[in-house]
Design a protein around this nucleic acid. Structure first.
Lengths: 209, 209, 209, 209
DNA sequence: GATGAATGAGGGTTCATTCAT
DNA sequence: AATGAATGAACCCTCATTCAT
């Protein structure tokens, strides 16, 4: 069924995908309206179901699509040769931000889908992305130069800590954006990076020889 | 209107609150069905609206109720006299876990409500809890013994990092629980604390003199 | 059941009657809320049904009550000895207006009840008031001095015409009041009578010798 | 939205219109049930709202529809060239009766809607029909031959009186019909006209030279 | 392939009425 | 007598999904 969709003229595919992505991320799974999607995509009601079968399957397709696109973009741009752990994590964090800015609807959709409990992602899909992530991680951290870390530090623990700090900092920024629309508009990416680097510096000091 | 509810026999109150809490946290605001709530609570449809007026007001009441209960419990048990930053944060983290285990539905509900975009919590309520949290924080960190930190470390940054690590660790555990119900059942709180303490030890080493 | 109501302290009776009268005339039968009535009357929900059994029976009681009161007032004040047809009809029309001004809620209620099709007045009640009206009419027109009419005029026809003109004029005024609240406030009863008398003069000229 | 409805097969349109017209006029706006309407029209619940959006819009559409149909029919059949006031009013009255007999549900609906306080017709619609009526009236009475009236009679007053008599007579007949279904079935239109003409004769005698 | 009219289960909400106290 | 908590049928409306064209 989705084969049919994929052999559509690309412009129409894009129109439909963007319409659905936007609607789902703006209103959540349950609240999103297939009526609204077809209106945004300028196609008929029947066609949507002709291609995707159900709202749920459409959502699942979008999840697959978004994750693939996001992860591919990510792993094609990351510099696997970097051996410094902190530099690599910093690079990953900044790349993530770059991708969010490049595909905001797509990212919002992924966020929404992780959060919407009205809905369970198909295990197969989850497994697929778990596998991609696992494989990506191992490649990412394969060639880390452990000798830079202070004695006795486990690299896994250190990695987790740095990532959690990155996430915590990111969430704080996102919350500020949510609360204060002005903040979002004026968000100076450079200022953001500078602040992030403060934390990085602290961690470097703490964990590096 | 809610006064009527509050002067009900406690058992019935509990039944209704639990039913609603469970339904909302399982299915999200929009998806939650008042039909299902009354069925779970074993009361008539009309009664729910007799007490709460609308689904929205019910949700708002639950939010208020849950937050109050959770925060009160938290702040009544925390040891404000502790001056060691890491000990205090560890204590807070463990207390939080204890509370989650004690009121799991309540915690799930709060999580859901923070995430559910189909619904905007009344700003007044949010402000109220923001105020409680802010005041709690300042009391919590009022008497920290800064002299234990290595020179040049900003206490705010250090606090944030430790909290983010706690959150990151907590999320990892919650995800495991979500993915694997067995894990949840067998969750050995002591094992959990031990693992958490590994991270705490690393951070202590990193930040303390 | 209504016996119980009638042996209530008069003040409470009045409170209930007025509350119900007002609610029904303001919002129509279906739209009227028993909740609102008990609130206005400051009695409990159960009591209303204790006395009247159902919303419908309450309405029926009010119909009976209002009609009785209105007709009694009317027939007690009309001058049956007047023999001039036009004077008698003019007197009746003005008396009606006086009563409307005296018991506006009551009159509104009667109007509402004649118009509300969501509801059928019990035939017994209708018959009762038909009988009263018929008997009143025959007394009213018993001693008319027919000799004043031009030759060949049937008194019944003339009476009907004059009454219809009165009604038509009245309706026109009511419509203006409905459309323009200012008109209602500024309504000068004397001006109203003067205009009415214009029509009366025309009819007198037309029908009297 | 209503465009969709208007491009439906006429038979279905009629079925829906008649069902709604009947339900509204039988039970009033508030009491009328959309459930009942769809049952009568033999369509699904959703379809009604697909076409009309809401009960209120459906009602408004019917009001517009009925008024247009009624007024168009009326003004297309009336003989504007008639210069005799009484003949013209008689013609109008009989035409009105003819139309009521032709579209009874439609007429009942209009009556109901004028009377139903649970609902305020959109001012725009009211204005529209006021304008039509006003323009119709002025055309209707433009070429009246005033010279036939007795000296000193104001044509406006005379017109009003004749119309009010027509209305009064009409109401009396309608009431008889309501009270006694047999009367309605046996209603001999010719007998009716004859009786009406009695009043017309009296008025002619009274007002014409 | 493409359309959009048509469906009907389910949603939140109201309210006259009942009944234990 | 008096209360008001409790009921549940009926209300209007939404929306994913189907299907004849």
């Amino acid at each position: 069924m989705i084969q049919k969709f994929l052999s559509l003229e690309p412009e129409k595919q894009t129109r439909i995908i963007n319409a659905a992505l936007a609607e789902f991320s703006e209103r959540g799974y349950k609240n999103a309206s297939t009526n609204e999607i077809v209106k945004r995509a300028n196609i008929s009601k029947g066609l949507l179901f002709h291609y995707f079968g159900s709202k749920k399957k459409l959502f699942l397709f979008l999840y697959d699509y978004s994750m693939n696109l996001f992860l591919n973009d990510f792993y094609s741009k990351i510099d696997f040769s970097e051996t410094d752990l902190i530099k690599k994590l910093r690079q990953a964090a900044l790349l993530k931000i770059e991708l969010i800015q490049k595909h905001p609807d797509l990212y919002n959709f992924i966020l929404t889908s992780m959060v919407d409990d009205s809905f369970e992602i198909k295990p197969e899909l989850e497994d697929k992305f778990k596998a991609i992530a696992r494989e990506g991680y191992s490649r990412l951290f394969a060639n880390i130069d452990v000798s830079k870390l202070k004695e006795g530090l486990d690299v896994r623990h250190v990695t987790e800590i740095i990532m959690w700090v990155g996430q915590g900092f990111g969430n704080r920024v996102l919350e500020q954006m949510k609360r204060d629309p002005d903040y979002k508009r004026d968000l100076d990416i450079q200022k953001f990076i500078t602040e992030y680097d403060t934390y990085i510096a602290i961690l470097k000091n703490a964990f590096y020889k």
